[in-house]
């Protein structure tokens, strides 16, 4: 037999890093959220729930929660519906499908900053391609990223364009795991294509849908980069996501206490969502053979 210590030595480095950079920070965040600190002074007085009171009574915080929730509620279903529909057409392993798959997948591995920059140019008010196209049709120019009514939609569009390919690839893998016999059986029954899609495909890829739902909601609540590059939360807070607010309070105002309070609140919200999903949706997801 090998030494009893062997497995512990093998996992020690990973666990050390996880402890220092993931688990201890959760406790640190919790601790700091009850203190007042600007990072510059040494004193970190305990202020109890004051930070939470301030955060929960600030309109800025509730605005960011609202914006993030709208973003999640629109972009996640939009992505999943588009992805499953496209994936069911691209599931075959033939050249056209593979070409299109590759094209759709590419943005998801591409730099978010670069994509945000490129779309900033597309939607630029002056010299932007979209407005140039509108002008060509004789339409007036639109203030895409300066109009509070529109900016969030642009962010949703960019995010969908970037992430869609990832969802599609996951769905394709899920579809390929379904036995082709099921489709054949449905064909013999004379099922119409949409009918088969609705009654066979959709229920059978439920585990995949569940997986994507879990990770894309978590992702949606952590969206930061696109907004930071394109709008910095503006105009007038119309695209101000929770993490953008957290970054601003923590790293430009250096209010460590309130920043930590926001982090803890978001953390609790995401844990609650995860538990809720496991309870409510988890039950519906047992098609594994």
């Amino acid at each position: 037999m090998t030494s009893r210590l062997t497995p512990y030595l093998l996992i020690a480095p990973l666990l050390a890093f996880i402890a220092v950079f993931t688990y201890i920070p959760i406790l640190t965040s919790a601790n700091l959220s009850f203190r007042e600190w600007d990072f510059l002074t040494d004193a970190k007085p305990w202020v109890g729930t004051e930070n939470y009171r301030l955060v929960l009574s600030s309109s800025e915080f509730w605005n960011s929660v609202k914006v993030t929730a709208i973003f999640a509620l629109i972009s996640v279903p939009l992505r999943l519906v588009l992805a499953i529909a496209i994936a069911s057409y691209l599931v075959r392993e033939a050249l056209p499908q593979r070409l299109l798959r590759g094209a759709l997948f590419l943005p998801s591995v591409t730099s978010t900053v670069a994509i945000a920059v490129v779309f900033s140019w597309l939607f630029a008010t002056d010299y932007g391609v979209i407005n140039a196209a509108l002008a060509w049709f004789g339409l007036p120019k639109v203030y895409w990223l300066q109009d509070p009514q529109l900016a969030l939609w642009v962010i949703i569009l960019v995010n969908t364009w970037k992430q869609l390919g990832y969802d599609i690839v996951i769905y394709i893998a899920g579809l390929q795991a379904i036995s082709p016999d099921l489709y054949d059986a449905a064909d013999v029954d004379g099922g119409k294509r949409f009918h088969v899609f609705r009654r066979v495909t959709v229920p059978l890829v439920m585990p995949t849908t569940y997986f994507l739902l879990v990770i894309s909601v978590i992702e949606a609540f952590q969206v930061f980069t696109v907004v930071d590059v394109m709008t910095r939360g503006g105009p007038a807070g119309a695209t101000d996501m929770v993490v953008n607010l957290l970054y601003r309070i923590g790293f430009t105002l250096f209010d460590i206490g309130q920043g930590s309070a926001i982090a803890v609140l978001l953390f609790i919200l995401l844990i609650a969502l995860a538990v809720f999903k496991a309870r409510v949706l988890g039950r519906k997801v047992h098609y594994e053979a």
Binding site: P7, F21, I24, P25, I218, I256, F267, L270
Partner: peptide, 29 residues
């Protein structure tokens, strides 16, 4: 090994832990 399942669960749980919560503490560390 004793504790193996628990430690594995601790590793897997990091998949569900949103990274923003570590932002300020890691900066401070």
């Amino acid at each position: 090994f004793p504790g193996g399942d628990f430690l594995f669960a601790a590793v897997v749980a990091t998949l569900m832990i949103p990274s923003h919560i570590t932002l300020i503490p890691n900066y401070l560390t």
